[in-house]
Write a protein that binds this DNA or RNA. Sequence first.
DNA 1: AATGAATGAGCCTTCATTCAT
DNA 2: GATGAATGAAGGCTCATTCAT
Lengths: 219, 219, 219, 219
Amino acid sequence: MKGAHPLPKVSETRKDAVRNDILEAAGRVFKRKGYEAASMKDIVAESGRSFGGVYLYYANKEQLFLELIGRVYREMNESAEGGEGTAPWEAVGRFLRDQLARAADADNGLAPVLYEYLIVGRKEERRMKLIGERHDAVFGAIERLLRSGAEAGTFRPTIPVEAIALTVMSFLDGMFFESIVSGPERIRLDDQFRVLSDMLRSVLMPGEASAVTEEGNPE
Amino acid sequence: MKGAHPLPKVSETRKDAVRNDILEAAGRVFKRKGYEAASMKDIVAESGRSFGGVYLYYANKEQLFLELIGRVYREMNESAEGGEGTAPWEAVGRFLRDQLARAADADNGLAPVLYEYLIVGRKEERRMKLIGERHDAVFGAIERLLRSGAEAGTFRPTIPVEAIALTVMSFLDGMFFESIVSGPERIRLDDQFRVLSDMLRSVLMPGEASAVTEEGNPE
Amino acid sequence: MKGAHPLPKVSETRKDAVRNDILEAAGRVFKRKGYEAASMKDIVAESGRSFGGVYLYYANKEQLFLELIGRVYREMNESAEGGEGTAPWEAVGRFLRDQLARAADADNGLAPVLYEYLIVGRKEERRMKLIGERHDAVFGAIERLLRSGAEAGTFRPTIPVEAIALTVMSFLDGMFFESIVSGPERIRLDDQFRVLSDMLRSVLMPGEASAVTEEGNPE
Amino acid sequence: MKGAHPLPKVSETRKDAVRNDILEAAGRVFKRKGYEAASMKDIVAESGRSFGGVYLYYANKEQLFLELIGRVYREMNESAEGGEGTAPWEAVGRFLRDQLARAADADNGLAPVLYEYLIVGRKEERRMKLIGERHDAVFGAIERLLRSGAEAGTFRPTIPVEAIALTVMSFLDGMFFESIVSGPERIRLDDQFRVLSDMLRSVLMPGEASAVTEEGNPE
DNA sequence: AATGAATGAGCCTTCATTCAT
DNA sequence: GATGAATGAAGGCTCATTCAT
């Protein structure tokens, strides 16, 4: 008996590892096929396990997806938090650049799957909760970014910060969407990014030299 | 056309009427249930016809949807063409207001269905064509709007018009998407519209009085 | 167009025939394997049709069974109604003999399946309705039989007719049950039938010559 | 028995205790959910042990149930033996009253589970053995009761005692069955009990005063 | 032209039992 | 003795599309 330990820490770790294994396999399948088209059979095969083995850890396809998507939110939040010590406009620039990079790589991420999940499930009461959470998470991240700049006096928006945040959010969603369906090249993500930067500057810091492009924009 | 046969005009007309009947029935079902969730059985029932009857006119669910969505593009183009004699900025305002109205009413239109179709089918080679067409149609409409203003000298963009057009397109897609999944109220469509107007002014007509809001914005 | 007929009678008939075909196939499977053990796959195979073909007519296994069992009730009722013009005691005798015959042949009927369905589903709210219906149907049939004899003055029960009816019902259920699990020979159905007859006579027609066995009993 | 090993008595006892623990847990689950619906997972959880732990003591769900049901038979036999010194008719009354009480409380006992097990498994060769045992146990108990009364001269049945015993057994099974599926109130167990008593008296002690109801019936 | 019954591959999920640790 | 993660066959059901009538 290894009985000394009341909770076998080792097993816990292993369990987590397996959970993670399955999750990653599911992630690969979702990315490859999309949410609707991914079948549990695919996920089971990709994970190299059995049906029972997968269902032992996740109740169904949706739970698998939900857990997977939770990570994306967390990362997005972290991306927005990052710039604690940074100058506000630079923090915004960094955040946008980060989103740009994600959008450019949308095909390899879960974003398309999330968009699919949300759009397809728009009539299902049950998915509403996730939808709300996503909205709050993304919106909150952007708003915090703008508000801290406003409080620092760097941003002097003539329009309420909330409205600007919502607008940025819409734009980002649109950029992702376009990138997903039309491909990043066709929609010239870089150009769009520059336009957005300029526009944002004009409402956040009205009157400042337009040369900002040289200062705060990427590349 | 097999036009050699002297098909009676009446029959042609009747055929078109039937096609239209079915199409409208399909439209109602798609709006009500979404693309994936709509079954041919639903459409057959809504049309008051039989399976055979529907398949006689449309090869499958997808064709039905494609024909339906063709109309939306045509309307969207018309919306952009409209302002022939109008002042450029007002034409832009009108176009945006039009999109705003559509977004606010997204639930009752085919837009959600289109977004769903595009997102879900992003992996299917076959849907690429439609995707490209949609992109060109929407982008073209916006670009024409902006370019005519630039050619008239009213707009003096410091950024290439194409980039601005793409950005506007992204924003509109995002606004639609958000409206669909989160609901028009939650995302304060009106506020977003105002922010977009301001932003757009600042890149299209840099240096002009910010009071434009009073002139060119809706409400 | 055969358009003259608003309702194609022929098709209706054919549909009924198919429904019946499937029902009979299901009946054979249920009898052979029991309710739980019968799979839709079995029924589909036995019916010589496809899954879709069967589901076109019946929503699921339960509906199939319920429709099947409806017939049994109807027959049971008819069995009880039969003796309109007959003398009360003879009507009772006929009814009992009928039940005896059914019990003896239980293995080849649906009764075991019904018992299984009721017992297994005793916790399921949904099956309660059927259970109630069955109870009322069987009880009603027996009670009517006894009551008409009482009203005719032939039966002079010292115990309320309802109580006797319930007792008879219990006995019949028990006889069926025993016949199903132990086999008709082992439980000597004939002997039991005679005992029941005697007992019933003594409470329905107290004081009459015990020789009734010769008059009213079967064989 | 591998009895050669000097297994410490304590361990043997502990083993029995564990077996009993598991058995009782299984009993609770069976009563709560029924035989088919009870899963090994439920039993494992209820017992507070592991799958392996349970399978170590019982080979499968069926063994668990079989051991459990063995007790019921033993108790039933004891119920019938009880009345050694009692007057025959009173012993019968006691037995019947006992069964009535059990039937009234059927929901809380294993009887429904047994009925389910027998009915569902009627096609399985393997369950036949148990079925036979049960039959013999119950039948034997009743027959002994009646025969001892007959040998004492108290009962003067005009019908063979075996037939009466089988009939009583059928009735009891039916009463249980009805109680299980329809509920004890709906079938007025008390009334049925009285009817059965009267009937039984008339065949066991023909010619005696019908006032027996006052003497030998419960309540 | 029109009907609508029929097809059948494919989907998700459950659960008794085993066996490496 | 104990554990509990893992197995995988089997079950019920759906739905786009076809084709005999």
